[in-house]
Design a binder for these strands. Structure first.
Lengths: 211, 211
DNA sequence: GTCTATATAACGATAGAC
DNA sequence: GTCTATCGTTATATAGAC
């Protein structure tokens, strides 16, 4: 007699697979880092076989890159859309950017992936290069645009634009990494920090008042 | 007859050993990270046996902690000596501190060790706790003292002191880590950056001029 | 029946154990 | 220093959709 109501061995779900694999990969990478994450485990968490991963991604590094892109791209797109259309005060634009960066820092796993880049990219140059081109450079390009816009409009002082961009993003990133590493020490309290950071940046960039 | 001018199989050099082992350990840790560094290799680089390491250090983590302490302690001592005695403008004191931090960031391996803490301390809580207590908290305590001093003297504005301390140190640390990770991208040029950073911090902290 | 998404199983490099 | 287990990767078999 035939096996009653047998389970299917697998289902074909071409559309959903990549997203499911990326979601599983994100969890595993964020928890274990790049080298220690096993594709077997990713496959299991995604409910597919290891080989299926290779149908959609060329390699482990390619999967990692796809995950980074998935998180970063829509946020940058949104930023750039605003940068292209906004025409109010640069200080407001900057505050919007900082809010967006806060959201990325506290609401996505991108900082965990950044940590992986810091920690392991010497062993895996491919992921470092991808991250540099698609996150670092693109992020800094956007910040630089805001700063240059403010300078051009006389709202911000003349300054080293590259350095100023670092002043905006580095405290946010490092505060996030610190909390991620040392736990929620009162010292690193994010709410107070982000408010103070916005104020600090605004003062650091403000044009001198004419006497 | 006595063996003529025999070479000694080993030499007792109780005084020098710890420093030599720490120097070797620093190189290996900085290159490979904590988990991947093998004490066998440290021993070889220091010209001693693995057992000798255990004569002077309780464990791998203890060796790591000793190295961190060796680098950090004299710098903090010097900072604190100045903080105890200086009585000029707080802006100058802050510039001195930033110069000192730049020196630590660019002239020591402490950033490489900080990277290890970020990357691996979830697997090795002992080294995280040591680093937190002897580097993070002590460093922030000193920065906070400078900021509070400036506020008390009316040179700096009232602000979130913890956040301000992060504004001072995080860009320095992160710029260093970024150069360490991505190589010497022109974007992260340290000379321009440190100059701009000092200016940025000074403006961010400056008391409002009374109208 | 054909096409292809998916699983199973094998391969080769490499790191870790003894 | 050798052996072995593990894991990224690839080749082949099979099952599901149309």
């Amino acid at each position: 007699m035939p096996a009653p109501a047998q389970e299917q061995k697998f289902q074909r779900r071409k559309e959903e697979r990549p997203a499911e694999i990326m979601a599983a990969g994100l969890r595993i990478f964020a928890n274990k880092g790049f080298a220690a994450a096993r594709l077997e485990e990713v496959a299991e968490a995604a409910g597919v076989s290891k080989a299926t991963i290779y149908l959609y991604f060329d390699s482990k590094a390619d999967l990692f890159a796809a995950i980074v892109r998935e998180i970063a791209t829509p946020r940058f797109d949104e930023m750039e859309r605003l940068l292209d259309t906004y025409d109010g005060p640069s200080a407001d634009l900057l505050n919007f950017m900082i809010g967006k960066l806060k959201e990325i820092a506290t609401g996505t796993e991108l900082p965990a992936l950044a940590k992986i880049i810091l920690a392991e990219s010497s062993n895996f140059p491919e992921i470092r290069e991808f991250y540099r081109d698609h996150v670092i450079l693109r992020g800094f390009a956007n910040l630089s645009r805001v700063i240059e816009r403010g300078i051009a409009r006389g709202e911000f002082r003349e300054c080293n634009v590259e350095a100023a961009a670092q002043e905006i993003i580095f405290p946010i990133l490092m505060n996030t990494l610190a909390r991620n590493t040392f736990g929620e020490l009162p010292f690193f309290d994010p709410d107070g920090f982000f408010t103070a950071h916005a104020e600090f940046v605004a003062r650091g960039l403000a044009a001198d008042r004419e006497a």
